[in-house]
Simulated scan of single mutants.
Amino acid sequence: MKQLSDFTDFSDFRTNSNHYLCHMIIKSAEFICSNTQISKLPPPVKAEYAFIGRSNVGKSSLINMLTSKKGLAKTSQTPGKTQLINHFLINDNWYIVDLPGYGYARASKSKKADWSKFIHTYLDKRESLQCVLVLIDSRLEPQKIDLEFCNWLGEKGLSFVLVFTKADKQSNLKTDQNVALFKKALLATFDDMPQYFITSSETQLGRDEILGFIGSINQNFEIPDYKS
């Protein structure tokens, strides 16, 4: 079994409760660039947090909620709209990285392959990436594609946490049931359950917890060695 603690150590963060280690105020949030080429990304001198999930999981809405900047990340009724690696600079200090959603059926096989290649290359090679936030629709029972992606992160030794979205769309009991089912499914291949957040872009549930989590990691960020 994969030992989650071998590649991520967030044991000090009680991210599935109302406790967070530091309060972060978002003073600025701006779009910096979109890319399909890793070589054209900003220099890896600031901490980065990658947001990814199945198409239509509510990623853009979550990013806008976290930054309190409506329209920062473009939302769409059409799943799979994000097809680029988008960098947003927060407080002139760290990046939210909006990655293309996975699993949208209308994309061609070649397009899916292209997306998969550069997403995986970014996740595996980016020196300043601190954590991957994997978004999971809290209304659904465990989806194979989400579990497979988490397993890939585990195999690569990449730090990740889970973010369950759209909790306002159902009862707390139903959300808790689906989180428990996902935990059970993930523990088939992992020895430990990753840290997780329960969120709602509508009610701002989970906002302070996620920002506190990021802020605490930022306190210990050191600029990595990299080839310019």
Rank of each mutant, 00 (worst) to 15 (best):
K2V: 10
L4H: 04
L4Y: 14
S5H: 14
F7M: 03
F7S: 02
F10T: 07
S11H: 10
F13A: 09
F13Q: 03
R14N: 14
T15V: 08
N18M: 08
N18D: 13
H19W: 10
H19M: 08
H19C: 09
C22E: 12
I25R: 14
A29V: 10
E30V: 08
F31Q: 01
S34G: 15
I38T: 14
L41T: 03
P43W: 10
P43M: 12
V45M: 06
A47C: 07
A47W: 02
E48V: 06
E48H: 04
A50M: 03
F51G: 01
G53N: 07
G53Q: 00
S61L: 03
S61C: 06
M65L: 00
L66T: 00
T67R: 00
K69A: 05
K69G: 00
K70W: 05
K70S: 09
A73R: 02
S76A: 06
S76M: 04
S76R: 04
P79M: 02
L84E: 14
L84H: 15
I85N: 03
I85G: 03
I85F: 04
N86I: 09
N86S: 06
F88M: 03
N91I: 08
N91K: 03
W94K: 00
I96A: 10
D98R: 04
D98V: 06
G101A: 05
G103E: 08
G103K: 11
Y104E: 02
Y104D: 05
Y104H: 11
A105G: 09
R106L: 04
R106D: 12
S108C: 05
S110R: 11
S110N: 10
K112V: 09
S116V: 03
F118L: 06
F118K: 01
F118Y: 15
I119E: 05
Y122I: 10
Y122W: 13
Y122G: 05
S128Q: 10
Q130K: 14
C131A: 09
V132I: 13
L135R: 05
L135Q: 09
I136P: 05
P142Q: 09
P142G: 02
Q143Y: 11
D146F: 02
D146A: 03
D146C: 06
L147Y: 08
F149E: 00
C150K: 00
W152M: 14
G154K: 09
E155I: 08
G157W: 00
S159F: 00
V161H: 02
L162Y: 11
F164T: 10
T165V: 05
K166N: 10
A167N: 09
Q170F: 04
N172T: 10
D176C: 06
A180R: 09
L181D: 07
K183H: 11
K183Y: 05
K184V: 00
A185G: 04
L187I: 08
A188E: 15
D191M: 12
M193I: 13
M193Y: 13
Q195F: 01
F197H: 12
I198G: 08
S201N: 07
S201R: 00
T203E: 09
Q204P: 02
E209V: 14
E209L: 08
G212Q: 07
F213I: 05
S216Q: 12
S216M: 06
N218G: 07
Q219A: 12
Q219D: 15
N220T: 15
E222Q: 11
P224D: 07
